[in-house]
Simulated scan of single mutants.
Amino acid sequence: ARQEIETELREVRQQLRRLREEYRSVSISRQWLEEAEKRLVATAEQAQQATERLQRQMAPSAPPPPAERPLQVGDTVHVASVGLNGEIMAIDTDDETATVQVGGFRLTVKCSELKRAKTADNGEHRFTLPERQVNLPSMPDVSMTFDMRGWRVSEVSGQLDRYLNDAYLAGLHQVRLIHGKGTGALRQVVRDVLASHPLVASFTGGGRDGGDGVTIATLVDR
């Protein structure tokens, strides 16, 4: 396309030269002069159009927009399911979920529910509430009892954290965690998680309701 425009531009310039030579070589009448002026104007317009097309062809194209990097730990994100902003604390690439700290509690949500949120000018991540009133979704299907008997110790932490988050959102005040007696290793992991979890106000043994094989956890008020 560029070569065609350059060829057209050369032809227009040759026409201009021929017209100028005709001016010098003929006796000029008024009618011929008017016709020649029209031809000159038309030829000049063609030259201008060809030049503009050539400039557009040679103009550098705009660079493609940079690709957005994947979400990572420390990013401030908006959690669509609850309408709040929080900070990513962990990402599980196997099941495509992320643990997000939202104010005083943690949520485990699908990465597809998260969008990167704007941060403050100083670069610090801040927990922000939207101007409108937000009602956290209820989850009526969450049971008050969570049975972990037969689980491996490595399975407890993540699953228990998710259950506590769901129980809090469902409005449960107290939950019954069944871990069994066994060697006591499973019970110890459960209580270690409860001791550091921001949604747990207190916990105690099952007493008459299961003894050492059960732990009763009381959640913080909403």
Rank of each mutant, 00 (worst) to 15 (best):
R13H: 14
Q174T: 12
R176I: 03
K110I: 03
C111T: 12
G213P: 13
V200F: 05
G103L: 10
T183V: 02
A167L: 00
D221V: 02
R116I: 13
G104E: 10
P60I: 08
N165H: 08
L199M: 12
N122K: 06
A167P: 01
P70Q: 03
H197T: 04
R132S: 08
D166I: 00
S157E: 15
R152S: 13
S143W: 08
G182T: 09
A185C: 07
D161T: 10
A67Q: 09
S154N: 09
I178D: 02
A36H: 08
T215Y: 00
A47D: 04
S112V: 06
R208T: 00
G206P: 00
E155T: 11
P137M: 04
E113R: 03
G205H: 07
W32I: 06
V100I: 15
D192T: 08
L199F: 03
A167Y: 06
S157Y: 13
R149G: 03
A36N: 05
A185E: 12
D192R: 13
E52Y: 07
E87R: 12
G207L: 07
G86I: 01
H125P: 00
V26N: 13
A117M: 13
L84D: 02
M58A: 15
H197G: 01
D121I: 04
G180I: 15
A117L: 11
T128H: 08
Q101R: 14
I91K: 03
S27F: 11
G182Q: 13
R162K: 14
H125K: 06
L219S: 04
A98C: 11
V134Y: 02
P198H: 07
F105H: 11
E113G: 02
L177E: 06
I5C: 09
R10P: 00
A195C: 07
R56H: 14
H125M: 05
R69M: 04
M89D: 14
R17E: 14
S196C: 09
E35D: 14
T76A: 05
R149H: 15
T218P: 00
P66G: 02
R20D: 11
V73F: 10
E68G: 00
S29L: 07
S81R: 05
L54V: 02
R69D: 11
G213S: 14
R69E: 15
P130F: 05
C111Y: 02
V220F: 02
G213F: 15
N85R: 12
R222Y: 12
C111N: 04
A50R: 01
E45S: 09
L19W: 10
V77P: 06
T215F: 01
E11P: 00
S138N: 09
A44P: 01
T183Y: 03
M148E: 04
Q48I: 11
G104P: 06
I28G: 04
Y163T: 04
